[in-house]
């Protein structure tokens, strides 16, 4: 517990963490405000039998579509959250900070667990703020139609899925940064993982491979299969994200234990 509190203190007292957090939240607000007019217009045009046309030529049941938008809105920040994790992990490789850290907590397993838990806890809060921002903007669009929709169990489940994705993907990015020993290297590796999914390189070869990438898994976990071409089930997506987090954390643990603390 003491090591966890120490790691949390390190996170909260690093200006870079606040800057990246602020940028992520501001970016989410800007992106959502850009779409606000589109959402409001689509909601205003919902038919008496509850059909909405968010995307032209693609009518859907309104409640399903709004909940899908809610999940998709938060997922837009998916590529940026690992930068936060890389900044948190990368601080150890600046000015010999890792040496001081290991002096304070010399048992590497205990240290790694504390770091992962602290990073996960911080990212969880940021993810909740992102989800809250998405909810606030969508509430503005649906408040005259069905404001209770955003408080249903299904909406909460969507947020929980996003938060799970955010924490697991950031744990992965954190562990990768520890292995690569630098913020920039961690950011590049995380963005590379994202880019492979977004460019659909692997999906063009085999859908099964795309489903094994973190962001591909996130799409499978979060998005509505009715309007998105997904490559696996939500359960598969969650298992893949958990697998990435566990495997990279294990490798980071081995690296931390075997390498000198430099």
């Amino acid at each position: 517990m003491s090591a966890f509190r120490a790691e949390l203190t390190k996170i909260l007292t690093l200006p870079g963490v606040w800057i990246v957090t602020g940028v992520v939240l501001a970016l989410q607000a800007v992106v959502m405000s850009q779409s606000a007019g589109l959402f409001a217009g689509a909601v205003a045009a919902i038919t008496p039998d509850g059909v909405i046309e968010v995307f032209a030529g693609l009518p859907q049941p309104a409640d399903e579509a709004i909940l899908g938008l809610l999940a998709g809105a938060s997922l837009q920040m998916g590529p940026f959250l690992p930068v936060l994790a890389a900044v948190i992990a990368g601080q150890e490789f600046r000015s010999g900070q890792l040496g001081v850290t290991v002096l304070a907590v010399p048992r590497r397993v205990r240290l790694l667990v504390a770091k992962l838990l602290a990073t996960g806890a911080y990212v969880l809060v940021v993810a909740l703020l992102v989800a809250g921002t998405s909810t606030a903007f969508l509430y503005a669009a649906v408040r005259d139609w069905n404001p209770g929709l955003l408080l249903t169990g299904e909406a909460v489940l969507g947020h929980a899925r996003f938060v799970a994705f955010a924490v697991l993907f950031c744990v992965t990015a954190f562990a990768v940064t520890l292995v690569l020993r630098g913020t920039l290297a961690g950011v590049v590796a995380s963005l590379a993982l994202t880019a492979v999914t977004m460019t659909q390189v692997l999906a063009a070869i085999a859908l099964e491979l795309d489903a094994l990438l973190p962001l591909g898994a996130a799409r499978n976990l979060l998005l509505d299969p009715g309007v998105n071409d997904l490559t696996a089930s939500p359960g598969h997506g969650l298992a893949v994200l958990a697998g990435w987090a566990a495997a990279t954390a294990l490798i980071a643990g081995l690296a931390l234990g075997r390498r000198d603390a430099r």
């Binding site: 690093l14 601080q91 600046r94 000015s95 002096l103």
Partner: peptide, 26 residues
Amino acid sequence: ALLEGAGPVPERRAADHLMWLARSNR
């Protein structure tokens, strides 16, 4: 211990550096 090449992150405040160290060892 004071070791050459093992120091605080430059952007952190000195009091915060000491605070996380204190918390790590109760």
